[in-house]
Design a binder for these strands. Sequence first.
DNA 1: TCATTATACCAAAACGAAATAAAAAATCAA
DNA 2: TTGATTTTTTATTTCGTTTTGGTATAATGA
Lengths: 381, 381
Amino acid sequence: MYSVLYESELTTAGKCDIFGMKTLPISFPATLPETCIAEAHRIMKSLTIKDIARMAEVSVTTVSRVLNHRPDVNPDTRRHVEEIIEANHFTGNTNARGLKQSNEVIGMIVRGRSNPFLSSLAEAILERGAMLEDSFVTDYVDERGDEFLAALRRTRASRVKGLIFVGSLIDDRVRAIRDLDIPIVFTTVNAEMASLPRASSVSVDDRTMGRLVGEELYSLGHRRIAVFGSNPVAGDSLARRFQGFCEALESHGVAFDPECYRETRFSYDAGYDAARSFFAGHPDATALFAMSDTVAVGAIRAIHDLGKSVPKDISVIGYDGIDISRFTVPRLTTVEQPVGEIARRSINLLLEMMDKNAAPRHVLVQADFRRRDSAAVLEKE
Amino acid sequence: MYSVLYESELTTAGKCDIFGMKTLPISFPATLPETCIAEAHRIMKSLTIKDIARMAEVSVTTVSRVLNHRPDVNPDTRRHVEEIIEANHFTGNTNARGLKQSNEVIGMIVRGRSNPFLSSLAEAILERGAMLEDSFVTDYVDERGDEFLAALRRTRASRVKGLIFVGSLIDDRVRAIRDLDIPIVFTTVNAEMASLPRASSVSVDDRTMGRLVGEELYSLGHRRIAVFGSNPVAGDSLARRFQGFCEALESHGVAFDPECYRETRFSYDAGYDAARSFFAGHPDATALFAMSDTVAVGAIRAIHDLGKSVPKDISVIGYDGIDISRFTVPRLTTVEQPVGEIARRSINLLLEMMDKNAAPRHVLVQADFRRRDSAAVLEKE
DNA sequence: TCATTATACCAAAACGAAATAAAAAATCAA
DNA sequence: TTGATTTTTTATTTCGTTTTGGTATAATGA
């Protein structure tokens, strides 16, 4: 499909003029000081703990102790060794460290790689982990089952001591990792999960938020509402959102019509396709609850393509609060999940279980309902 | 900011009814067969190559040979060992494997973690790598300099044998990793790069595409055009886009006014802010070339908030072709980078350099100009 | 004073896979 | 049948770190 336009055989600077640039009309400041560059040079020279020991004239054991912040090192010795480490920009060998089964590497499996919400959650977890100097092994997989098993195998190959699972997991797969003998934190609650002896979870209070969405759409006057979700199973986050949503409607005497439920993958494309076919076939539906912002964004585009307007003809409410939701036209009304909070709590729970052998806990955090422009009062004709 | 709504002390299934669900009105098929679950169970039991050797009644060396597809193993022995491996769902220990410096782990540093284009490129590379059974160590960093150095250190700590760099790198930092004694592939061309002895690059023919963007906007009647880019330096991809763009205008006798250039980070927010302030202060500007789709999307939103319309009042052209560009309102005219192609070529180039010690090459691939709805003919008043 | 306890350090033994060197077995040539 | 060559297999060493089990030395208590 794509062809190569040009392949240069550049190996020397002299031949580089095919990339030769005219001077830009704007000048930019240099951003990295020379000392930084010099440091980077030294970073790449690969020393071992043995080299450091020799330089500091101590044993490797002592260096290891310093590196791991162990107590029984003389403060003077410690400082001396630290200076040598600092001066040579020494970094340990991750592999050698991982060989001893005593190491504490955290694994993360992100299931649903094209979902911006999950990506941002994973990023927040990595960021938080880096702050605490925890090492991570991350694996991004698609939502299909076989890839998940491959990730599980890779994760085990790295001998991680704890696992964070980002994304939802249907019961079958929770059961599939029941025998995994390490602490796990799920970023989604699942009924089956309670039977796992070493699994905690952090998730948004989906039922309440689902109820809020239902209340909002009801109070705006909507009665025939589409719901786009993705294969929820009893106990899963999605099912809880849906349950709350139905409860809200029922509390006003409106029963949700199963005909209005569509199962979609969580992507712009899937949201587009689902909305296009659904609203073409159901001209009486006036609102959509999309259980993922990606689906909502795709749906809004589809509704436009059907010659209808959001929110004038059809109101749309999303879920997740991904970055783009603040910039769409119209801006998306959605449930914003506190990504940083979920990340922080997930890591804390995992570390508690790993280090202090704490009992698993299931934590619900509060989300924010963001009322923006994509859901409005239904205009009667 | 966010508080905990509820923390359960769930440890047994019996207490689980706070999550108790009513039956859903829709039923979903189970998706994972029993055999798969049984397999996953066994995956987690962690065996060593020694165990396999004992079971197969051969030496560990032989097992190692089988695992690494070495030639000197009797086909019968190989099959026998493979059967044992298969039956026990054996997976090697990544750490032990990495300890020997003969191993071939690929590192990837993604600079600019919140940019969807870079994320999708990184994903494509991981996907491609998984297909070829290459192991990856990935590090996502922000665009700031210090984080980059930390990533470099982590990468070295994993003793990777090759590095793929995703995102643009200004000259200073290319120089900073000059001494890195492993093959590198950049997904962006940089003038400084040609002086690196073991660096290849794969990038889009940015100059041509920049020229196309310039031609497009000129032919639609635009003369006063804003350009939003991010700190380009001579030789960088962005500078080449910009160069092509300026050349196109100049070929029609229009000089680009440096006043119309804005330096922004590549994010929705930055695009929004830049557009909001720029177009408020420059009511005569009728078009925008955003060097990243994220910036374009943010800008479109800002233009709306200024009470203007895209493309009626202001035409916008983006760059990258991220997923969302097909679903915005209006759909975004942009330059679509062939992510899969860049991923494929990057890995191939790197493997050639790692395995066959091939000379570095600098490859330009063709991008697609996607003419959609965000750029239109300028209406004269 | 001598035993006891802490403190600060070290040598050597893991850890699991892979490479090396070398032995054993099979094949071939005369 | 013998020696040479190739194929297949093994025992042993290696990688860089942590841990184990220990030894000195200094401080403490009786």
